[in-house]
């Protein structure tokens, strides 16, 4: 375990995020009788896993100092295209799902090309991409709504294997792959190097641009995956279905202790961040506070997490 790079072990923010999750859970349990019931814990984990999926891509993007704002559109696009192409027929999923995931990667690659090769600020590149995809989806679906996905996908998403929800199992597998990729693979080392100091990484012989492509491609993939699974979860697809994930993915990463400046953070923190966000929503729900309170809480938490995360970094500051 001594080999973990980029501040997973050193980052007390990740530990703090898990502690906060514990406190939030205790708070909910004291307030509401069935908060700690197995059924509710299952709901919390399933809800958190969707943020966890898109959080993979967002973590990688933010590790390089970027951000992916096209996640909501890619997510909704994957769900809409899957629902439309499969048209309720289960056997079609064998080619529709791979197709959709590849399309997600391609969209991510376009973002990455703009960021890495043309030097476009990630925020503007992915915002523009998001708009373009929204338009295409509206044209494609003629209004942006699709219902009746194949039964099998609904059954898979709402089903269990050995008592654990399938979605949570998928999340566990993806988390394992991400953690291995970041901590033990050469790619992870290079990503942290680029995120910490691109000039030093360049001088060390890393192809900075090629490494910068990866986070956006991965983000396209994980957003598309989240879209396919969310289609099964909701039983329908619509253009706004991904909107909540714009904030939640970025905030989950920030709460998990990652530095917005890049180079510091880990997916382990994002896992904690996704659970914290879900618990906050659940706690506000227990207190009978709705969407408005969630939006306000998200904003405050984002600022607090980035501020305290930034202070731990010492003196590294942004020019702007």
């Amino acid at each position: 375990m001594s080999d973990l790079s980029g501040g997973f072990r050193r980052n007390s923010a990740i530990v703090l995020a898990f502690v906060v999750a514990g406190v939030l859970f205790l708070f909910g349990s004291i307030y509401a009788v069935d908060f700690a019931s197995v059924a509710h814990i299952r709901t919390i984990l399933i809800t958190a896993s969707f943020t966890g999926f898109v959080g993979v891509g967002q973590t990688l993007c933010m590790l390089t100092g970027g951000i992916d704002l096209s996640i909501p559109s890619v997510l909704a696009g994957a769900a809409l295209v899957t629902a439309n192409l499969a048209n309720g027929v289960t056997s079609r999923l064998t080619w529709v799902i791979p197709l959709v995931l590849v399309a997600g990667i391609l969209v991510g690659l376009l973002n990455g090309l703009g960021v890495a090769y043309a030097g476009v600020p990630p925020i503007i590149m992915t915002l523009g991409m998001s708009g373009a995809i929204q338009g295409l989806l509206l044209i494609y679906t003629n209004g942006g709504f699709a219902s009746s996905p194949p039964e099998s996908i609904v059954n898979f998403v709402t089903g269990d294997t050995v008592g654990i929800p399938n979605v949570v199992l998928v999340w566990a597998v993806i988390s394992a792959v991400t953690i291995i990729g970041l901590s033990w693979a050469v790619f992870g080392r290079k990503l942290y190097a680029v995120g910490t100091n691109p000039v030093a990484a360049f001088l060390a012989g890393i192809n900075v641009r090629r490494i910068l492509l990866v986070p956006y491609a991965v983000s396209g993939l994980t957003a598309a995956l989240a879209g396919v699974l969310l289609l099964g979860f909701y039983g329908q697809a619509f253009t706004d279905m991904g909107n909540d994930f714009l904030f939640s993915s970025a905030i989950a990463v920030a709460v998990g202790g990652a530095s917005i400046l890049g180079g510091r953070g880990h997916y382990v923190g994002t896992i904690a961040g996704a659970i914290v966000l879900t618990l906050i929503t659940a706690d506000l729900d227990v207190l009978s506070l709705g969407t408005a309170a969630v939006d306000i809480a998200y904003g405050i938490i984002l600022i607090a997490a980035v501020y305290f995360g930034g202070r731990k970094l010492g003196r590294r500051r942004v020019a702007s």
Binding site: I67, I123, F247, A250, A254, I260, L261, T291, A292, A293, V294, D295, I296, A297, Y298, G299, I300, L302, I303, V306, Y307, G310, R317, V318, S320
Partner: peptide, 30 residues
């Protein structure tokens, strides 16, 4: 103030205030 005093990036600060203002707007007029 948050941008100049904390050194946080403008897009993060304004992303957060966007969310907060949206939340208040939603509370005022759902």
């Amino acid at each position: 103030l948050m941008i100049v005093l904390t050194g946080m990036q403008p897009f993060i600060v304004t992303l957060a205030t966007w969310s907060i203002a949206d939340g208040i707007a939603f509370a005022v007029l759902p």
